[in-house]
């Protein structure tokens, strides 16, 4: 069921193509990475999938559903979550509240229940709180639970960003450079989390990442973008020996 297809997607900004005829098949249960030099269109493709941009041409399908014209809240309700490259957290709220917000759709009590805080409201809040705690445990965020997100260090905020996406309980998780700006130790933590997500949580992961070492290590499938065009795909070994990909990366250096 969890099967995402991007077919012939073109995204245009005022005459300039950010993406040109991109095709991708994201298979369930594996880690798919999207790599490419700066400005290659990696974030753009995630934006198209998650509904922030709508492709000018082409189609995106998730199972039987079309995501081509869906809005972000619809996409998230279909079970696709996204962690942003540039932090997009609710900086005025605690870590806990940030994650509880990801449970918004599961808290289906009425406003009357909320005003009197009885029955369903209290019960569902507690139940979902338990789920949030599970994610906090997993992402090792316990010390920051009650802290205001805006006051946390960049590395921790990045982790909250991933945790929040995970709290949506997605089947497909889109991670946009979750390790950017981190030191080796922090990176290793995130790598461990991603591998656990695949193994223990059975979540399909789409990873955008610049660190080629990490990408080659953990990916099952890699797509390479350059100037908005797909220039290579395959297993890490296939991609590493693809002359076009080598060209693009050497050309960049």
């Amino acid at each position: 069921m969890t099967y995402l297809t991007v077919s012939d997607v073109t995204l245009t900004f005022g005459g300039l193509n950010a993406l040109t005829d991109v095709n991708m098949d994201i298979e369930p249960g594996i880690i798919t990475s999207i790599i490419g030099p700066n400005g290659a269109g990696k974030t753009s493709i995630l934006n198209c999938i998650s509904g922030f941009y709508h492709p000018s041409k082409g189609e995106i399908r998730y199972g039987r559903r079309s995501l081509t014209k869906a809005s972000p809240h619809q996409v998230s309700n279909y079970g696709i979550a996204r962690a942003f490259q540039n932090l997009e957290l609710f900086s005025g709220l605690s870590v806990l509240d940030n994650l509880m917000l990801a449970r918004h759709q599961n808290l289906n009590y009425s406003i009357l229940h909320a005003v009197f805080y009885f029955g369903k409201a209290a019960r569902l809040e507690a139940e979902n709180r338990a789920y949030v705690e599970k994610v906090i445990d997993f992402m090792e965020l316990e010390p920051y639970r009650k802290m205001m997100v805006g006051n946390l260090s960049y590395g921790v905020q990045k982790r909250v960003e991933v945790a929040r996406a995970l709290t949506l309980a997605p089947r497909l998780l889109l991670l946009d450079e979750p390790m950017a700006g981190m030191n080796i130790e922090e990176k290793e933590d995130i790598v461990r989390f991603i591998l656990d997500l695949k193994k223990e949580w059975n979540i399909t992961v789409v990873l955008v990442e610049h660190d080629l070492g990490v990408v080659m290590d953990i990916s099952d499938q890699i797509y390479v973008l350059d100037f908005g065009m797909l220039i290579g795909k395959g297993t890490p070994d296939e991609v590493a020996s693809n002359p076009k990909v080598i060209d693009a990366y050497i050309g960049e250096e």
Binding site: G51, N77, F90, L101, L168
Partner: peptide, 9 residues
């Protein structure tokens, strides 16, 4: 934007 991604309109 993030609110949208969290599933609320």
């Amino acid at each position: 934007r993030a609110a949208d991604a969290m599933g609320m309109h």
